[in-house]
Design a binder for these strands. Sequence first.
RNA 1: GGGCGGGUAGCUCAGCUGGAAGAGCGCCACGCUUACACCGUGGAUGUCACAGGUUCGAGCCCUGUCCCGCCUACCA
Length: 885
Amino acid sequence: MSIKELGKAFEPAEAEKRLYAYWLKNKFFHAQDKSEKPAFSIVIPPPNVTGILHMGHALNNTLQDVIIRFKRMQGCNTLWMPGTDHAGIATQNVVEQQLAREGTSRHALGREKFIARVWEWKEKYGGVIIDQLKRLGCSCDWDRERFTMDEGLSQAVREVFVKLYNEGMIYQGDYIVNWCPRCHTAISDLEVEFKSDASFLWNIRYPYEDGSGGIVVATTRPETMLGDTAVAVHPDDPRYKDKVGKFVILPLMNKKIPIIADDYVTMDFGSGAVKITPGSDPNDFAMAQRHQLEIISILDGEGIINEHGGPYRGQDRYEARKNVVADLEKQGYLVGTEPYEHNVGQCYRCKTDIEPMVSKQWFVKIKPLAQKAVAAVTKKKTRIVPSSWEATYFDWMNNIRDWCISRQLWWGHRIPVWYCGDCGKVIVSTVDPDRCPICDGASLAQDEDVLDTWFSSSLWPFTTLGWPKRTQALKTFYPTSLLITGFDILFFWVARMMMMGLYVMKDVPFKDVYLHALVRDEKGEKMSKSKGNSIDPLVMIDRYGADAFRFTLVAYTAQGRDVRMSPERIEGYKFFVNKIWNAAKLTLTNIADFDENAPLEAGQTLPDQWIRTKAAEAVQDVTQCLDEYRFNDAAASLYRFIWHEYCDWYLEASKPALYGKLSGEQRRVTQKTLRDVFGVMLRLLHPFMPFVTEELWQALHAGEGESIMVSRFPEAETSWINRDAEREMEMLMEIITAVRNIRGEMRIAPSMKLKVLICAADNAQKKAVDEGADYLVNLANLESLQVEVDLVEPKGVATAVVGSHRIFVPLEGIVDIAAEKSRLEKELAKISKDLEQSSRKLANRDFRHKAAPEVISKEEDKLKSFQEKYATLEGALKKLKEIAS
RNA sequence: GGGCGGGUAGCUCAGCUGGAAGAGCGCCACGCUUACACCGUGGAUGUCACAGGUUCGAGCCCUGUCCCGCCUACCA
């Protein structure tokens, strides 16, 4: 066969570019809408168009690509659906900042022009991340790339909105929502991040209307008192029983407000009385609804006190706080101030303190949707991996509140609702109406708001496949097979996709969900720009190659555990890539002259049989690990097989055959094994290290073969497994290690050839060693090897025991006997510990009665071998002492 | 306040349904043996957080305690 020559080292930068282009050119990533093959599909968690690749993306997409390549090689019609989302707030922010630098604003531009500007920006800078995913090696079906604001997806959003509306699942109303005064929009409960803040608890006295003293309330937000419309106490509180129904005077505002009773109030907190500000607190808002209280909003959309704030009008909320406190103090209403730590909600986007505010918003009735989403997981229609996340999922779903889906932004899917200026009719439609269906008036105005970005993301698994059209792709690939994403968007995205998939498609969006952990730095801290500890994936790819980088991520992805990343770790796997490269060089140069067609006369050598067994095991193991999403275990298995089995032992053991020390026939058999096993190895490794494996696969086939991408993933060849050969080879390996150990401990130069004598227990044992003699001589660097059944132990030797073999290395003239004495003593100490432990166990009557028979016989075998080993070593030591004395 | 995960070799972590404590990196010693010094060979290192319990037997199961992360929550 002809083989391509390999360079001194793998050149990732050049090879990655070339190979990715080759894959693209041949459309290997492309999935068929219709196919005989079983379908396998994953939709990408769409990154923000504004996004640039960070470690989280790198991990997430590497895992997806591993599974996708694995399934593709297994013969599935495999679709990895890529795309980006429009990220309402983030994208709008970016363009607004750009406008600000130009000295203008979106308001100056107007809605239409602004949106045009955002599109312009998107075309120019958006989706950088797509190219970055390509650098990672992602084998997405790029021909199908989607964007949440695409024509088709936008239409789908309207369809779903209208369906929900018509079925009474969407409503509009004035409710208290989380308002971001900087982004100028409502956000959902999920988009609020709570941060603990060291502040104060201000105690304020509200005098009773009749002048008979007052009631003290505590607050962390004194400025909100301007909008107080009641004071609440617990109905059972004896202190206030007779006060309920009476009135207090709201200080500063000089206004009468009632004292009400509600069991929301905790009696033993503070004074047991709470000020109620329905316009600025969700709990107070709820109470206001229960008691028909007046609801006053004292803040405008910017967080500035409005006309309802009396003298404080025009002041920023924090400025107003200071002034209110000062005035209360001045007028004698402030009873006390104590330091207090509490949680403050912030906008997840801009970290501005959230202002709970009453405004008109659109909501989705979520309970009915959530119930079905819970049932789907209970019934295992969707499986969450690791399953420990199920509890979190259930908990959230069961305590869910209606979803506020309207946003006061310009960039996004505009709500498909129109209001007739003539008759007031509300029109909800999938197509833009020209005229009012009731009065035929033409003065229609569309709702100003857009939808939460997550609304369109929640439809992603089917809209990307063409819905609302009943496309072939949809038929083939929905429900998708698997979703891989970070646990941090379990609620934001996974849960909502579950709800929407079930609602719209009447089926779950995916069968499996694999949730991976976060990437942290080597100290376990979250990576962030401000901390300066973030690692740029692209820099890592440039420095170490995509293969090494990917393998590192996979190797550290244990279920339910964070990934700790550092350049040093990636470097370690770069060394692994180098090792593979060099093993390939050795392998390929030695099989270059292998003639496939000539019949093989000789049988396989022991190492041949052994490495085939190990290869079959590795295939089995890696396949199972991937099936179970145990990524780190798969990586470890590959690492061990390639480095410690193939390179350390098999390549070394096959050298005699390759370098012509064995017969030509034997050489050809070994060549065949090399070629077979090496091919298996490459294919097994390909999902993890796509580039170097492709490069080597091409070399193996002299550039004439098909891509490794579309080759068949290895299946465990049971015919390759030979347990006898495995056992025999491993026995030889142990003997070799024992001799090397003596060499190392005795400080015998590696270059010095040794004479070794082995005393075998019987003829069968002797034969086994004799058969491996060549390997032994070679790998232990021996001058001679003598194996006998009745060997009288020579004098002045170093001794080791492997199984029932006693191994002697004559030391005369090589080292001093004292060194061997101390080595033996050390060994004896070790073995006597084992011996003692084992015999104590076996002496225990309960153990003999209650333990499983196979456990007992195993223990007995152990004891026996300990005893033999002990006796041999002890004898050897005694002899040495005789010589020494 | 509730929930989840974790505490195993100097470091980062494996350890599946209880049956001789493992890997990688780091460390020490020796070695440029014709794939690889991005390497090879050998070596050292552990009260498996703590205290009880179940069991013939516990890193693994149960109870409690102490730390460390994370998620979640309307106590002013």
